[in-house]
């Protein structure tokens, strides 16, 4: 049901500060609106979204009803190590969304692929 798209730079060197962009497919129903029959649409927003890298929390956000549907989260990380990135979010309906990505950080002195 809930899916997400992730964007990070194609190549990351150690020490780089890089931008992480996450677009989550979520209705973010505020609980203030009514449907066409006048019935209140139950509040359903993302309670919290956490990004961990190798099990260590590196980013956390707690969006509220003020955030529009399909939110886009942008934040910066300093590249220290390669590892498993895990994004996890929980909404008011207790739905748990997950996105995994294997982060590859290249050594800072890694040269560009040799060109003859």
């Amino acid at each position: 049901m809930s899916s997400a798209r992730l964007q990070i730079p194609p190549r990351i060197l150690q020490g780089d500060v890089f931008k992480v962009r996450l677009l989550v497919n979520h209705p973010m129903d505020s609980g203030f609106l009514r449907d066409i029959d006048g019935v209140i649409i139950q509040r359903n927003v993302i309670r919290h979204l956490v990004c961990t890298l190798n099990g260590r929390e590196v980013f956390r956000v707690e969006p509220t009803t003020g955030v529009a549907a399909n939110p886009l989260f942008e934040f910066y990380l300093r590249a220290t190590e390669s590892g498993d990135m895990l994004f996890r979010w929980v909404d008011d309906k207790a739905y748990i969304g997950e996105l995994r990505h294997t982060l590859v950080v290249e050594a800072a002195n890694a040269s560009k692929p040799a060109s003859n």
Binding site: S3, R5, Q7, R21, L23, N25, N70, L72
Partner: peptide, 8 residues
């Protein structure tokens, strides 16, 4: 190309 919400 990434953040365009139609992409979903």
């Amino acid at each position: 190309e990434f953040a365009n919400p139609s992409n979903i």
